[in-house]
Amino acid sequence: AVSDRLIGRKGVVMEAISPQNSALVKVDGETWRATSGTVLDVGEEVSVKAIEGVKLVVEKLE
């Protein structure tokens, strides 16, 4: 799938994300809905860990 190429890519949080709420991230110039197990604020850099349906699963870039 096209989205599989995004695993391992870096992105930027466009809307705050919490474990209860998905929000938008920008990866390679494209906007995607994403979820995370932690709270992520706007502007934080993230890494794509997986794809669940049409959502990216991201975590904060260390």
Results as ranks from 00 to 15, higher is better:
residue 1 A to R: 10
residue 1 A to E: 10
residue 1 A to K: 11
residue 1 A to T: 11
residue 1 A to C: 13
residue 2 V to K: 09
residue 2 V to I: 13
residue 2 V to T: 09
residue 3 S to C: 11
residue 3 S to V: 09
residue 3 S to T: 11
residue 4 D to W: 08
residue 4 D to I: 13
residue 4 D to L: 12
residue 4 D to T: 13
residue 4 D to K: 13
residue 5 R to H: 09
residue 5 R to L: 08
residue 5 R to A: 08
residue 5 R to C: 11
residue 5 R to F: 08
residue 6 L to W: 06
residue 6 L to D: 00
residue 6 L to Y: 06
residue 7 I to G: 01
residue 7 I to D: 01
residue 7 I to E: 00
residue 7 I to V: 08
residue 7 I to C: 07
residue 8 G to N: 05
residue 9 R to T: 05
residue 9 R to K: 12
residue 9 R to F: 07
residue 9 R to S: 06
residue 10 K to S: 07
residue 10 K to T: 12
residue 10 K to N: 07
residue 10 K to G: 04
residue 11 G to D: 02
residue 11 G to Q: 02
residue 11 G to A: 07
residue 11 G to E: 03
residue 12 V to P: 02
residue 12 V to L: 08
residue 12 V to Y: 09
residue 12 V to C: 10
residue 12 V to G: 00
residue 12 V to R: 07
residue 12 V to Q: 05
residue 13 V to Y: 02
residue 13 V to T: 05
residue 13 V to P: 00
residue 13 V to Q: 00
residue 14 M to K: 03
residue 14 M to D: 02
residue 14 M to I: 14
residue 14 M to R: 01
residue 15 E to M: 11
residue 15 E to N: 06
residue 15 E to R: 09
residue 16 A to K: 13
residue 16 A to S: 10
residue 17 I to M: 14
residue 17 I to Y: 13
residue 18 S to T: 12
residue 18 S to W: 10
residue 18 S to G: 13
residue 18 S to Q: 08
residue 18 S to V: 07
residue 19 P to I: 09
residue 19 P to Y: 11
residue 19 P to N: 11
residue 19 P to L: 10
residue 19 P to D: 12
residue 19 P to F: 11
residue 20 Q to T: 12
residue 20 Q to M: 11
residue 21 N to M: 11
residue 21 N to H: 12
residue 21 N to A: 10
residue 22 S to E: 14
residue 22 S to A: 11
residue 22 S to W: 13
residue 22 S to K: 06
residue 22 S to M: 12
residue 24 L to H: 05
residue 24 L to E: 03
residue 24 L to P: 03
residue 25 V to G: 02
residue 25 V to D: 01
residue 25 V to H: 01
residue 25 V to T: 02
residue 25 V to Q: 00
residue 25 V to R: 02
residue 26 K to Q: 10
residue 26 K to M: 14
residue 26 K to H: 08
residue 26 K to R: 12
residue 27 V to I: 13
residue 27 V to L: 06
residue 27 V to D: 00
residue 28 D to H: 04
residue 28 D to V: 02
residue 28 D to P: 01
residue 28 D to K: 02
residue 28 D to T: 02
residue 28 D to F: 04
residue 29 G to P: 02
residue 29 G to H: 05
residue 30 E to C: 13
residue 30 E to R: 08
residue 30 E to F: 11
residue 30 E to M: 10
residue 31 T to E: 09
residue 32 W to M: 03
residue 32 W to N: 00
residue 32 W to D: 00
residue 32 W to I: 00
residue 32 W to P: 00
residue 33 R to Y: 15
residue 33 R to M: 15
residue 33 R to W: 15
residue 33 R to N: 10
residue 33 R to F: 14
residue 34 A to H: 02
residue 34 A to L: 00
residue 34 A to S: 05
residue 34 A to M: 03
residue 34 A to F: 07
residue 35 T to P: 02
residue 35 T to W: 10
residue 35 T to V: 13
residue 35 T to A: 06
residue 35 T to I: 14
residue 35 T to M: 10
residue 35 T to C: 14
residue 36 S to C: 14
residue 36 S to P: 02
residue 36 S to W: 06
residue 36 S to Y: 07
residue 37 G to N: 14
residue 37 G to A: 14
residue 37 G to Q: 13
residue 37 G to E: 14
residue 37 G to P: 10
residue 37 G to D: 15
residue 38 T to H: 11
residue 38 T to E: 13
residue 38 T to M: 10
residue 38 T to R: 07
residue 39 V to M: 12
residue 39 V to F: 14
residue 39 V to I: 11
residue 40 L to R: 00
residue 40 L to D: 01
residue 40 L to G: 01
residue 41 D to H: 15
residue 41 D to R: 15
residue 42 V to K: 07
residue 42 V to H: 03
residue 42 V to Q: 05
residue 43 G to Q: 02
residue 43 G to C: 14
residue 44 E to K: 04
residue 44 E to N: 09
residue 44 E to D: 15
residue 44 E to Q: 11
residue 44 E to A: 09
residue 45 E to L: 14
residue 45 E to T: 11
residue 45 E to K: 09
residue 46 V to N: 01
residue 46 V to D: 00
residue 46 V to C: 04
residue 47 S to V: 15
residue 47 S to L: 15
residue 48 V to E: 01
residue 48 V to D: 02
residue 49 K to I: 15
residue 49 K to N: 05
residue 49 K to L: 13
residue 49 K to P: 01
residue 50 A to V: 03
residue 51 I to F: 06
residue 51 I to W: 07
residue 51 I to V: 10
residue 51 I to E: 01
residue 51 I to T: 04
residue 51 I to M: 06
residue 51 I to N: 02
residue 52 E to A: 09
residue 53 G to H: 04
residue 53 G to E: 03
residue 53 G to P: 03
residue 54 V to T: 14
residue 54 V to R: 12
residue 54 V to W: 14
residue 54 V to A: 13
residue 54 V to H: 14
residue 54 V to M: 14
residue 55 K to F: 15
residue 55 K to G: 08
residue 55 K to N: 13
residue 55 K to E: 12
residue 56 L to C: 01
residue 56 L to G: 00
residue 56 L to Q: 00
residue 57 V to M: 05
residue 57 V to S: 04
residue 57 V to Y: 08
residue 57 V to F: 08
residue 57 V to E: 03
residue 58 V to Y: 01
residue 58 V to L: 04
residue 58 V to D: 00
residue 59 E to M: 08
residue 59 E to P: 02
residue 59 E to D: 07
residue 59 E to W: 04
residue 59 E to Q: 08
residue 59 E to G: 06
residue 60 K to C: 03
residue 60 K to E: 02
residue 60 K to D: 01
residue 60 K to P: 09
residue 60 K to H: 06
residue 60 K to Q: 05
residue 61 L to Q: 06
residue 61 L to P: 05
residue 61 L to T: 08
residue 62 E to A: 12
residue 62 E to Y: 13
residue 62 E to W: 12
residue 62 E to M: 12
residue 62 E to C: 13
